[in-house]
Amino acid sequence: MGYFNDTAKALRTTMVNAFREPVTQEFPLVIRPRAERFRASFALPDDEHGEVACIGCLACERICPSRVIKMKSGGKKDSPVTGKKRAYIDEFVLDLSACIGCELCVQVCNSDAIVMVRQPEVPAFAREDLVLDMEKLRANAKLKTASWGTGTRLQEMQEPPKAEKPAVAKASPATETAPAPAPAKETV
C-alpha cells in the first residue's frame, strides 16, 4: 500500500512542478548575479596616478601554490607622471590554466596591485589563450568588475584585533580602555 501512496505522491509532485515557474536562468542571455566576493580571473589595476600599481616585489610570485605567476622587475625609474622615483615591472604573466583561485596573491599584495575580477575569462580554444600577460591583465582592470577582496582589505580582515594584546601584556587597563574598532568589513 505504501508503494501506491508514494507513487501517487511522486506523480502529484511532478505534476505540480510542471506548472510552476522554472528556476532556470537562461545563461547567455541572463547572467545569474555574482556574489560580491566571486572571483574568476585577474586584473592589474592602476594606481591613483594612472600608472600600473605593481612594483614587482615578487610577493605574489613567491606565495603562489601553483607557481603560475612570473614577473620581471624593471628596476627603479622616475615616474613620468609624478616625477618621483618608484619601482616598475617589465613583464607580468599569469597562467590561468593552472590557477586554483586561492586569492593568496591578492592577499599578500601590499599595494593592491593585483586583484581578482568577477567576470570569468572566455573558454579558450588553445591553452596559450589562458595565459594572461600584462596587456590582458590591465585591460581586465578596465573592463571587468573587481571582486571585493584587495590586499589591504584582506590583510586587515585577517589581522588579530590590535588593542587587546598590548592591553593584556601591559596589565594596566587604565591607560587603554577603549577597544579598537572591529576591523572594517564592508566598506564598498
Binding site: 511532478t14 505534476m15 506548472f19 528556476v23 532556470t24
Partner: peptide, 13 residues
C-alpha cells in the same frame, strides 16, 4: 519539454 517542466527546468529552448 515536459520532463524539463516537471523538474522546473525549461527543456530545449
Amino acid at each position: 519539454k515536459f520532463a524539463g517542466r516537471m523538474q522546473q527546468r525549461l527543456g530545449p529552448t
